[in-house]
Write a protein that binds this DNA or RNA. Structure first.
Ligand SMILES: [Zn+2]
Ligand SMILES: [Zn+2]
Ligand SMILES: [Zn+2]
Ligand SMILES: [Zn+2]
Lengths: 144, 144
DNA sequence: GTTGACCTTAGACCTAACTCTAAGGTTTAT
DNA sequence: ATAAACCTTAGAGTTAGGTCTAAGGTCAAC
């Protein structure tokens, strides 16, 4: 039986975070001392590690809640349910990547167009491009 | 002189958002009616469009504040300052992309390992992989 | 028998960029 | 003159995942 600080040390999740997860239904201490101290079993440790691994894999706490409910009763759940959650998450991640890559593209074009030098910004093509708006996708290069 | 709803229609930024931007120092109405209604000039419209374009390019409102202060006095600012802001943003975006690609990788490996079928999850290799933790990067395939 | 490390709770605070509400004043058209 | 459609403000709420504080109770050591 571990106290919260011991579970914290074992998992790398802070005691605050562990209580936060408990409040959100992810990890509940199996037992309490008379004074109300949380006590965690080995099964709790495994559960906490599952949560941490899932979190590091990109799952939201809500996803993790679903995964945990599958975990405690695997007979009543199918591989398909598991892949559904995973695929949804992958789609989400892919969407965010696409969005960021579009920004990356824009920023690289902007950077490429500007001389980056010490002279004043009256001729700066980044400023011009932001002035022009979306219409023109490719900024003109600065002419010295 | 445009009223806020007219500027909103012209820029696609909601009146709420325009007031929010004003509160954060980005776009201030050049004038007010006697009753306190905001009135925007053509210069305000251009400024609002600049903000919108910068936002769509991925800049934070704080970044945009810096870009705007360069914009109003280009003689006192250099191309280098502009590229500094842009490069910092690009680094940030690249960092986020890398993080997401790592999640993408993990999720794809997980998905690849699981049969995704209707049978129960007692043999599910996604669940196993989340159980195992970080140590083993490649999940074993499910054997039917 | 008291110091110090640990634990408890409820609840406030954080970031970012909105988004909305309440409660009221203004304008315009009928 | 009254209803609809606009505008104002301050301030609360949203999302996600924590992070921290206050005010106090508990436990082990010296
Ligand atoms: Zn230049
Ligand atoms: Zn430049
Ligand atoms: Zn399977
Ligand atoms: Zn499976």
């Amino acid at each position: 039986m571990l106290k919260i600080s011991e579970l914290s040390a074992r998992t790398g999740l802070s005691a605050h975070t562990l209580r936060f997860y408990e409040k959100h239904g992810l990890i509940t201490a199996s037992d309490r001392s008379e004074a109300g101290y949380r006590f965690y079993t080995d099964a709790d440790v495994r559960r906490a590690e599952f949560v941490k691994t899932a979190r590091n894999s990109g799952f939201s706490l809500e996803d993790i809640g679903q995964l945990l409910s599958i975990r405690v009763d695997k007979l009543s759940h199918s591989c398909q349910e598991v892949t559904d959650i995973t695929r949804l998450k992958l789609d989400e991640v892919n969407g965010k990547i696409a969005e960021l890559q579009s920004m990356q593209q824009t920023l690289m074009i902007l950077l490429d167009s500007c001389c980056g030098g010490p002279e004043n910004a009256t001729h700066c093509s980044i400023m011009e491009a932001l002035e022009e708006g979306e219409s023109r996708k490719n900024a003109g290069r600065e002419t010295s």
